[in-house]
């Protein structure tokens, strides 16, 4: 018995400095482990590299771009710098019919693409995950109500809805994002709900209940970490969708006229009959950028799928 007492004092002494709490892996390492970046798949790595370049371009757009993308430019001989070929008068990728610099537009286009992609992905993943978690975990009428809402969202024709809502509210990037989030959460929510339904029957979830954990705590600590990769998966799918949707809307002329995006460039080129003028330097680069970024997103998605469902690839 005296031995036990001795051990006890030594333990409580050791614990006195409250700072010496149990050692935890540092928070950044834990974040990356939770993210589980798909670094073993060459395609996914290529996707990640494209994304890094894309993000860097968007962040440093102001210093990379040679001109203001909306400014109407003139040649050194004070002529309107319209329909210049690449390299002419120092315009890297030529100019548009209105005398704007294609290269600078392309660089700035990455910014709106990133903005739209990331915010839409974030909103879709967030809304979908929360609804999926709540519906799956609480079940019963909560589940019934939320899933009927999802059914309704499934019934909404995507592009017309986004166009109408964006036009109704005022054409801006944010309204396009909002409109997309209002429709696209349904897929995420459905999938996450079904995942939660299986997780809920796992022994350790029940064990947490028996251990007296609150519903909130169980969702946060035992269920959410397991669906996080799925949220990322659906988020990364949404990035591609969002960029494509924005491009489509801008191309159809319902986009935000004040911001330069790749879709806007395509629309501008189309309206100015760039094809007839064989101005490939004008519409090919934004097209390629859209394809690159969107497919990079899907490569990363595929990498996540390999982690989540390893058997698909056999």
């Amino acid at each position: 018995m005296p031995e036990v007492a001795a051990v006890k004092t030594s333990v409580s002494e050791a614990v006195v400095p409250e700072v010496a709490a149990p050692r935890r892996p540092n928070i950044i390492a834990r974040f990356f482990r939770t993210l589980r970046l798909p670094v073993n798949d060459p395609f996914a790595v290529a996707g990640l590299v494209i994304y890094l370049i894309f993000i860097a371009t968007a962040i440093f757009a102001d210093s990379i771009a040679t001109h203001d993308p909306t400014e109407i430019l003139y040649t050194p001989s004070y002529d309107l710098a319209a329909d210049l070929r690449p390299g002419q008068d120092g315009f890297l990728m030529g100019t548009t019919s209105l005398g704007r610099d294609v290269f600078s537009q392309l660089i700035h286009g990455s910014r709106s693409a990133l903005l739209i992609g990331v915010t839409a992905a974030f909103m879709v993943a967030l809304i979908g995950s929360i609804i999926g978690l709540v519906a799956g975990y609480f079940g019963r009428w909560v589940d019934a109500v939320l899933m009927r809402l999802a059914d309704i969202a499934f019934g909404i024709p995507f592009l017309p809805f986004v166009i109408v809502l964006a036009a109704f509210l005022k054409p801006s990037i944010w309204n396009v994002v909002l409109a997309m989030a209002l429709v696209l959460w349904r897929d995420t929510a459905r999938v996450i709900r079904s995942q939660v339904l299986t997780l809920r029957t796992r022994g350790y979830v029940e064990a947490a209940r028996v251990a007296g954990s609150s519903d909130f705590r169980i969702i946060l600590r035992h269920i959410a970490p397991n669906i996080l990769p799925l949220s990322f998966l659906y988020g990364s799918i949404a990035i591609g969708w969002a960029i494509l949707t924005e491009a489509s809307i801008s191309f159809l002329g319902f986009g935000d006229p004040d911001s330069i995006s790749w879709g806007y460039m395509l629309q501008d080129a189309f309206a100015s009959q760039a094809l007839a003028k064989q101005a490939y330097y004008w519409f090919v680069p934004p097209g390629v950028c859209i394809i690159l970024v969107v497919s990079a997103g899907f490569f990363i998605t595929r990498g996540y799928e390999n982690i989540l469902f390893p058997k698909l690839n056999r």
Partner: peptide, 24 residues
């Protein structure tokens, strides 16, 4: 529990597992 392989969260260390009821 019947199945010990299922009754402990695979993401939790033994310390975290045993802390849960104490925290609650």
């Amino acid at each position: 529990f019947q199945n010990p392989f299922d009754a402990i969260n695979p993401r939790f260390t033994i310390r975290q597992t045993l802390s849960e009821p104490l925290e609650n």
